[in-house]
Design a protein around this nucleic acid. Structure first.
Lengths: 362, 362
DNA sequence: TGACCATGCAGAAACGTGCCTGTCAACGAC
DNA sequence: GTCGTTGACAGGCACGTTTCTGCATGGTCA
């Protein structure tokens, strides 16, 4: 048995190559490639014939060979900065899930697939996958992964305004200052006299911008800041911090929590101290979770619109990849949405959550 | 300018190839490849020299070329059957997020990366990425994607026992029958006389097995089945179905909900009908969400242990990829965990007002 | 009728690696 | 002195595409 024959057998028993199709169709490799890719100038008869033979043989072009030849893999990296070994953070489950879902959908609609990659700069994994570009969620200052990627000439789009002078291709973010100010005004309008904040100890942009906006607002209206910080990546610390905030001698009569689980944590803490919501305590938290629509009482939430962010990030990245130098701004701000429910209204004008059927009076 | 020179310039301005390293180090391409991959027989001096030159040039081997040559891409597909255009379903957010996180970690630890792919058989995306294998979550009966993948000779491991004779390489699942029977016994022990079920209309294995286990249990203990079905993919339909279940003339005094949001939906419905939990209504639902630890009252949940499932699925898949024909069973059953809280206990053993405590670990 | 052009296809050069084979020198054993 | 052996490298093929170039053929027009 000749060597060529051996390697031909060993390649893939079930997979047919382009030259098998060419042989079976009685044409050349070029004709097969052109027929299947819609290139070249071929009569429809040949095109149909080749397509039919390829279908019959179950031909699937090798993605690796195509990538090597064209330089495009159709793969987009998706990475999240983490506080541990996990590939994405715990406290942002609903946000991350919705954002990733939207990003995946948007990518697939344009023929790309998403690869989940760790934020650590482990070269062995990053260099083993051919990427056309990368989406980075909440990049830290001077992120080594980002700088390495742009050094390789790959476009990088970040969810979250990059801190420092991180050389990203584009970024998408909410206007966090405006969101916080809007919530504080909303709570003040509802009658709050002393508004507290439940915030984080980490140094990411979201936490930083939101906290400073709160401090500025306090300074403007002449209120002493009342806030508690905790490590947001720790799922247990939130409940403790919520309890601490309501145990203070200068207990606030309204609280805004920056992170998803703060709503239930604050609600539980309020119950422990006998505080009625919203009568004794107004509550708002930033969350994408739908459970806050059916809690007792329903809790007002701020949505960062992760679906729109995920879609926008991917669109910007693919535009950069395909060099559609669109005149779209490379910085895109997505508006937030305040979903007002009972917990932030002293006098609920009407039931915001209509029951599915005519309820009996409890 | 010659053609060769043109294409050489056009390849990648910033990227150095293996032959650039060879030229800079004064050795051949083979020596560079052997030195960097630890193959061949080279003196340590040469090996170190080549490594140093490669680092200095910022050399990163082309993943596409390596994949083409070796036939291994280091990529694992991750796909979920869906009920719409979205890449993964809405009602299983927490489960999917945790499972995907564990799967990503396990894959990265072994040098693989995960690619999110749609369950639709759109060849243009699937064939554009070179996969070494695929993880399929909840494959439907006679899934066309799975059969196509195994036809190509790729290993496929499913989360969820495959229905029918789906030719997967291996699968991991919980013992859903035992889990449901355990919950029903638990509720009966707590004093339930008529246990209702909130289930789904779809035909996936989880829903099917759980529902038939419920029916068998009812038959065994001589209780008339009381259940409502709804399309689980519709986030609004759950609340309606929960309301419907509690509005029945044969209203159950205990309910098990098969899906994640059922807990809050049932709790809200109970409040509308003036039912106290757990005094008038015992509640259990299947969920991975941590919010049920702090609801009023805390709700007993069944955890399917998505982290262990995600890890096991990836380990089995990579074992199959690397042909470590381990004598591990290709069918692996992960035990579930019932996290008993106030909602399923008639006589709470201790005070319901509990200090903030650390949430259960998954 | 020859020049010219559009059509329909084939040949072959890359893309960047991994690895098999081969060469050359040194060296000890007979 | 020759021969097998071993170390240390170089040459070159193959992976499976895409695509540039080129070569026939047949029709059209000056």
């Amino acid at each position: 048995m000749s060597r060529a024959e051996t390697t031909r057998r060993a390649s893939r028993p079930g997979r047919a190559g382009i030259r098998d199709v060419a042989a079976a169709a009685g044409v050349s490799i070029t004709t097969v490639s052109d027929a299947l890719n819609g290139k070249g100038r071929l009569p429809d008869a040949t095109r149909r014939h080749v397509r039919e033979v390829a279908d019959r043989l179950g031909y699937r072009p090798s993605a690796a060979a195509r990538t090597l030849r064209t330089g495009k893999s159709g793969l987009i990296g998706l990475t999240v900065t983490t506080y541990g070994d996990e590939p994405f953070t715990f406290t942002e489950f609903a946000y991350f899930a919705e954002m990733a879902r939207a990003a995946t959908s948007a990518a697939l609609a344009r023929g790309y697939a998403l690869v989940i990659l760790p934020a650590t700069s482990r070269h062995d994994v990053w260099s083993n996958v051919a990427l056309d570009g990368t989406v980075v969620i909440d990049p830290s200052d001077h992120d080594p992964v980002v700088t390495e990627l742009v050094r390789q000439g790959l476009p990088v789009v970040s969810d979250g305004r990059p801190a420092g002078s991180l050389p990203v291709t584009a970024w998408v973010d909410n206007d966090h200052e405006a969101a916080v100010l809007g919530i504080l005004d909303h709570l003040a309008d509802a009658g709050a006299r002393r508004i507290g904040l439940l915030t984080g100890t980490s140094t990411d942009t979201y936490t930083h911008l939101s906290t400073t906006a709160y401090l500025h607002w306090c300074e403007r209206v002449g209120q002493d800041p009342v806030y508690e910080s905790y490590p947001a990546h720790d799922p247990c610390a939130g409940a403790v911090a919520a309890d601490r905030l309501l145990a203070r001698p200068d207990r606030p009569d309204a609280v805004y929590g920056l992170f998803d689980p703060n709503g239930t944590d604050l609600l539980a803490a309020a119950r422990r101290y006998g505080l009625r919501v919203p009568d004794d305590l107004l509550l708002v938290c930033c969350s994408e979770s739908t459970v806050y629509a059916t809690t007792e009482p329903p809790i007002t939430t701020l949505s960062l619109k992760p679906r729109r962010i995920g879609t926008a990030v991917v669109q910007l990245l693919i535009d950069a990849i395909e060099n559609l130098d669109s005149d779209l701004p490379v910085e895109q701000v997505i508006p937030t949405e305040l979903i007002v429910r009972t917990s932030s209204q002293r006098r609920p004008p009407r039931t915001t959550v209509s029951p599915p059927r005519s309820p009996e009076e409890g």
